[in-house]
Amino acid sequence: EDYYQILGVPRNASQKEIKKAYYQLAKKYHPDTNKDDPKAKEKFSQLAEAYEVLSDEVKRKQYDA
Rank of each mutant, 00 (worst) to 15 (best):
D2E: 04
D2W: 05
D2T: 08
Y3H: 04
Y3E: 00
Y3C: 03
Y4G: 00
Y4M: 00
Y4H: 01
Q5W: 12
Q5P: 01
Q5E: 12
Q5D: 10
I6M: 11
I6F: 05
I6E: 02
I6L: 12
L7D: 00
L7S: 00
V9P: 00
V9M: 04
V9W: 00
V9H: 00
V9L: 07
V9C: 05
P10H: 09
P10G: 12
P10Y: 05
R11N: 07
R11S: 05
N12P: 02
N12M: 06
N12S: 12
N12T: 13
N12R: 07
A13G: 04
A13K: 00
S14P: 06
S14D: 09
S14C: 07
Q15K: 12
Q15T: 12
Q15Y: 12
Q15N: 13
K16R: 12
K16A: 14
K16Q: 15
E17C: 09
E17W: 07
E17K: 07
I18E: 00
I18W: 01
K20H: 15
K20M: 15
K20L: 15
K20T: 14
K20C: 11
A21H: 08
A21Q: 06
A21L: 04
Y22W: 09
Y22Q: 01
Y22M: 04
Y23C: 10
Y23G: 14
Y23L: 15
Q24C: 10
L25P: 01
A26H: 15
A26S: 11
A26T: 13
K27D: 15
K27C: 12
Y29T: 04
Y29D: 04
H30W: 12
H30N: 11
H30D: 14
H30G: 11
P31L: 05
P31Q: 10
P31Y: 07
P31N: 13
P31W: 05
P31E: 12
D32V: 07
D32I: 13
D32F: 03
T33Y: 15
T33K: 12
T33F: 14
N34R: 07
K35V: 11
K35T: 12
K35I: 11
K35F: 12
K35D: 11
K35P: 14
D36W: 11
D36F: 11
D37M: 04
D37T: 05
D37S: 08
P38G: 08
K39D: 14
K39V: 15
A40P: 04
A40R: 10
K41G: 09
K41A: 15
E42R: 10
E42L: 11
E42I: 15
E42N: 11
K43T: 07
K43C: 09
F44H: 05
Q46H: 08
Q46A: 13
Q46T: 12
L47K: 02
L47A: 05
L47D: 00
A48M: 14
A48Q: 14
A48I: 14
E49K: 12
A50Y: 02
A50Q: 00
Y51D: 01
Y51I: 04
Y51S: 01
Y51P: 00
E52H: 07
E52T: 09
E52Y: 09
E52W: 09
E52N: 10
V53C: 06
V53F: 03
V53P: 00
L54C: 02
L54D: 00
L54Y: 00
S55W: 04
S55I: 06
D56R: 01
D56L: 02
D56H: 03
D56N: 06
D56W: 02
D56A: 02
K59V: 03
K59A: 06
K59L: 08
R60T: 01
R60V: 01
R60S: 01
K61E: 11
K61F: 05
K61C: 09
Q62D: 14
Q62N: 11
Q62R: 08
Q62A: 14
Y63D: 03
Y63I: 04
Y63T: 03
Y63W: 02
D64G: 02
D64K: 01
A65I: 07
A65C: 11
A65W: 08
A65V: 09
